[in-house]
Design a protein around this nucleic acid. Structure first.
Lengths: 351, 351
DNA sequence: TTCGCTTAGTTATACGTATTATTAAAGCAA
DNA sequence: TTGCTTTAATAATACGTATAACTAAGCGAA
């Protein structure tokens, strides 16, 4: 008797007895054709060189074996991952899930998946994201960077990975495939500040974060304040979190001198933290202190927060469309364009 | 003059003038060694067969060319994607971002990325997720399925892809690598119902969703109600969304007969929708009607919603740990285990 | 008959990496 | 000198797919 050690193929010893997924080779073997024939039938709707009979036989065998194309192999061969990366500070900030859905809404029908990379708004994590993207994990990127600037990002475009930045202002066209989508953050903040002034507020403070879109928003606020002959009053905390917002508000309330009558949070999450701190200090909103935010995250409506609406879903969808078009053969060419969407002031009960 | 058409290598014509990313071959060429030597130096800390001088030369050249390993190629060669998939109904439901962060917190240090797949709680999308996973896009999965049951999921484990389900109750150990993490949803809902009864409520309605964890929660509620001699009052809407919650509450308020004095939403998002509908009907909370939820999403605290706290971050982290351990060579073996975490009743102002 | 065309495929190669097997050269002992 | 060991590598192969290039058989037309 021959010692026919029928080893299960590809038994790397790594996966214990996991039956390998069938490949085109397996189908070819079972259908009595070559691997190339299988690939042709599986990928092309019309195959002049494969007669219908063979075609159906191959398809039946594939179906029978439960064949699924091997994604890594496809990626390698075609140099396309069919994946978009979404690089954002923090998925738990309610602004971003909406953005992601917008992205997915356009990406999925075009055959792209979406990978999330959280940077926590930290420079070293942003750098890691770039490194990670250079490994060819995604065909395109939608990203918010707080720290990296154009020179550091250019490497992506140079390697053929289009990038759409979520920006806070218009960017001039550049020679690379770096696009941006934005609402005019400075103007939006200016308009909100005008609203506060129109409501009779004179002492208006702004709670800022150290990095990110807060900067442009602060500019808009500062300009309008000075125009109106008022003194801008900035209070800065580190991050876009409720804790930061609450901390900033607390510091505001502990200051000597007259309390501001209105507080403008550079983001809704900051504003929510501020609201909480104000409430637990026994202040009523808007009676004792008015509060405004920025983003219009879903809860803003529930809490009656007056804020600036950013169309996050549309921003995501537009970003994805841009990527899809750039990746189409013969698609969009440089220069990178800056695309503006409209904001809206949502007047609610907190002001 | 020779017509030396120095074509840029790998010019597929697809990417317009994008300089190709350098490969190990390029490094080898530049360093005057073989590709194999490059691979060895780049991957092993100790290389007995490569002397220090050559080693540093290779590393320098790699650094100089800005080499980044090609992820797809690695995946193909090693049959590992270093990616976890997170299959959830909807990333905009604030319960999930926290889960994702928990996942990432454990996955990232272990070298795994996290890919998000939204199913919208629809059966066909769940089926697509399975198909998609069978293409070898992820090494492991953390998932919430509303529709698919064990038999449909078994294929994953059989192909060597471990799965951790986010469950609503204990699951018996099975022969496959399918684990679960859960809090005891029925008991949690029971406890919440007891709280409502203790506060003097007798007519307590529950707003349910058609599928998902709502079922087990309803069981806990129903059992306690009947035990207390009260009649369970279910009102069902389709999804876990504010719209569904608001719609259900509206239907409740339009009913003939006595209005319930308390409403238990099967999830916080449902409860929030119900709160809004109640408020716009002119009812005060909890004066006219008490409202409770389930999940303890971040806003619940801000809105004073009494709810059941699920440790979403910990659930995600635990799920990831389980996957990491199963994927370690010589790691966890079947059977799949069910792991319980503790819930907590968060008493706030809405009850 | 010979040429050319169609049919039905097949063979060969490449994508970039990891790893196993192999080897050429040098050094040293018997 | 022969044989053996060590050093420093290289060559070959495989992972699964897509595709360009090729071919063998059969048939009709010139």
């Amino acid at each position: 008797m021959a010692t026919s050690t029928t080893r299960t193929k590809r038994g790397k010893g790594r996966d214990k007895a996991a039956p390998a997924r069938p490949t085109q080779k397996d189908i070819a073997l079972a259908a009595g054709v070559s691997q190339a024939a299988v690939s042709l039938v599986l990928n092309k709707a019309e195959t002049p060189s494969v007669p219908p009979a063979t075609r159906t036989r191959i398809l039946e065998v594939a179906e029978g074996l439960g064949y699924r194309p091997n994604h890594p192999a496809r990626m390698l061969r075609s140099a396309r991952t069919m994946t978009f990366a979404c690089v954002i500070p923090d998925i738990t900030n309610p602004f971003y899930p909406g953005l992601v859905r917008g992205l997915q809404a356009v990406a999925a029908p075009a055959g792209y998946d979406v990978l999330i990379f959280d940077t926590d708004g930290r420079p070293e994590r942003e750098a890691r994201a770039i490194d990670w993207l250079l490994q060819g994990r995604a065909d395109g990127v939608v990203a918010t960077f707080f720290h990296l600037r154009a020179p550091q990002l250019a490497v992506l475009a140079r390697k053929g990975i289009p990038l759409v930045r979520l920006e806070s202002q218009h960017k001039p066209d550049g020679p690379l495939a770096i696009d941006s989508v934005y609402i005019d953050n400075a103007e939006a903040a200016a308009e909100m500040t005008r609203l506060l002034i129109a409501r009779g507020h004179r002492r208006i403070a702004m709670i800022q974060a150290e990095f990110g879109p807060s900067q442009r928003r602060a500019q808009g606020y500062g300009a309008v304040m000075r125009e109106a002959g008022l003194t801008p009053d900035f209070i800065t905390d580190s991050a876009y979190s409720e804790e930061s917002g609450a901390r900033a508000m607390k510091r505001l309330l502990e200051r000597k001198g007259e309390r501001p009558t209105a507080v403008f949070g550079a983001s809704d999450v900051l504003a929510l933290g501020a609201m909480e701190a104000a409430r637990s200090a026994g202040l009523s909103i808007p009676g004792d202190i008015a509060i405004a935010g920025f983003d219009d995250i879903p809860v803003a409506k529930l809490l009656g927060l007056t804020t600036v609406r950013q169309p996050e879903f549309d921003l995501g969808a537009l970003a994805a469309e841009t990527l899809v078009r750039r990746l189409q053969p013969g698609g969009l060419e440089p220069p990178g364009k800056s695309h503006e969407l409209k904001f809206e002031i949502m007047k609610r009960s907190s002001v």
